[in-house]
Each structure stands twice: as structure tokens, then as C-alpha cells.
């Protein structure tokens, strides 16, 4: 068991990080920490993907010295996925941050529970 885990150390770390991020996003009340959790979760997935695409001893799949055969390079698809994923997670992070700023300006709090209560009170008045 331990041997398996240490053999696939990147995947193990990725899954642990994913769990950490997921828990923070789900359970933490502070919005900034939630966003951090979300980023940890996403990055963990990218680590997982990148480690899956990496083949020891091979080069980045960019043709420089005219080497054409496939066996010289690592699998390019996961790298592409990671890049796309980063773009997606940057945009969602930006959106979350802008929402957080808005809410902070309005309620002077980053605590989600408190914000929900304040918003409810605001509506009733």
C-alpha cells in the first residue's frame, strides 16, 4: 500500500491537496479562504494531469532541434488541458474575487454566514 503511494507520489499529493482544497471551499466561512481553497483544488487537478502526461527523460513537446520522432517528447495533451484549465480557473477566481469585493463593500464582512444574515435583514427593512 505504502509502496504504491510512494511510487505514485505526485498523484497521492494531488489527491490529498484536492481533498484539502475541497474541504476549505466547502466548510470555511471566510470568502477569501474559500477562494484559496478553490485554487488549491484546481491546482491539485493540474498537478495530477501534468504528472500523468510526464514521461521520465523526455523533453517538452516543442520542436527545436528538428527532432521529429514521437518518442523524444512527453504527451502534449495533458499540458494543453492544464493550460486550458488554468485559464478557466483564473476567470472563475476573478469572478469570485469581484463578487467578494462587492459584498465586502456592502456588508464590511468576509464571513459568508454573516453576509447571508445581513442580506436577509437588509431585505426585510
Amino acid at each position: 500500500m505504502i509502496q504504491h503511494l510512494s511510487l505514485n507520489i505526485e498523484e497521492t499529493v494531488a489527491v490529498i491537496l484536492f481533498g484539502v482544497g475541497f474541504t476549505i471551499l466547502l466548510l470555511h466561512r471566510n470568502l477569501i479562504k474559500k477562494i484559496m481553497g478553490m485554487n488549491i483544488m484546481d491546482t491539485a487537478t493540474y498537478l495530477f494531469l501534468a504528472s500523468k502526461g510526464y514521461i521520465t527523460g523526455r523533453a517538452v513537446p516543442i520542436v527545436v532541434d528538428g527532432v521529429q520522432e514521437v518518442s523524444a517528447y512527453i504527451n502534449p495533451v495533458p499540458s494543453g488541458l492544464v493550460l486550458t484549465g488554468i485559464v478557466v480557473s483564473v476567470s472563475t477566481t476573478a469572478l469570485m474575487l469581484s463578487l467578494t469585493i462587492r459584498l465586502y463593500e456592502r456588508y464590511h464582512s468576509l464571513d459568508l454566514d454573516e453576509i447571508l444574515i445581513l442580506a436577509k435583514e437588509e431585505e426585510q427593512t
Partner: peptide, 10 residues
Amino acid sequence: KGRSMSAAIR
């Protein structure tokens, strides 16, 4: 509105 924004973040 406050509630729609808090709903959005949720």
C-alpha cells in the same frame, strides 16, 4: 441587490 449577490456567491 444584497440578497442576489450573496445568492450568486453561494
